[in-house]
Amino acid sequence: MTEQAKKIVLLVEDDKDHADIVCFHISEYAPEIEVVWLHDGEAAIHYIEEGHDQWPWIVLLDIKLPKYDGHEVLSHMKAKETFNNIPVIIFTTSNALNDIEQALSLGANSYIKKPIKAGEFGSVITEIIDYWSLNQHGILFKDS
């Protein structure tokens, strides 16, 4: 990957309003990041299966999705070699520990609970960027 490479965040979220909010915050904190928004599980799986010039450096994944839910999407990602190094942050309204634990056991790296305050979201984005940098330097996910 080059320095000129776009910083892509893959957002899988069925609620357009939620997606809008996330996009707003990302653009506020890191305008250089491009958000790819997919509105259901089926589209996400399609995206995973297709070839891309540039892979996203992080995935924000909602659990409750039409057609295929977040867990199914996550399983697909981890099954795909090109995708299994990409960190996944679960982004959900669910309070159920089950959902989060299941996602972590399937290979998710972290999670954010909705609703999220503007300030909090900033630190999350910073964290995402840090993740990305570490990944760039081959510190994280070296062997996974």
Binding site: H18, T93, S94, K114, P115
Partner: peptide, 15 residues
């Protein structure tokens, strides 16, 4: 219910 009812709330809070 908790998820879906929360969803518009989350939206409101977000906006």
């Amino acid at each position: 219910v908790s998820h879906d009812l929360k969803s518009p709330l989350v939206t409101s809070m977000g906006f």
